[in-house]
């Protein structure tokens, strides 16, 4: 899995990086911190963490 960012919003620059990674290595999924709206291959949630928030986000994510 390729991560394009850590503790960062994903703007146009990082999005172009994601597109380049997908072309360079289409065998692996990509992800990025602070980006869990469903547009990445794998959603990422940063700290802090609570069980309530885990349950809430699980309802919005599709099982692999």
């Amino acid at each position: 899995m390729w991560s394009i960012s850590n503790e960062s919003q994903v703007g146009s620059g990082l999005w172009r990086s994601r597109e380049w990674i997908q072309r360079a290595d289409p065998s692996r999924p990509t992800t990025g911190t602070y980006h869990n709206d469903g547009s990445m291959d794998v959603a990422v949630r940063h700290n802090p963490i609570t069980e309530g928030e885990m349950s809430q986000l699980e309802g919005r994510s599709a099982s692999p």
């Binding site: 949630r45 700290n47 885990m54 986000l57």
Partner: peptide, 9 residues
């Protein structure tokens, strides 16, 4: 889904 930095000290 990945939970990032969730075990930090």
């Amino acid at each position: 889904m990945i939970w990032d930095e969730c075990w930090c000290i």
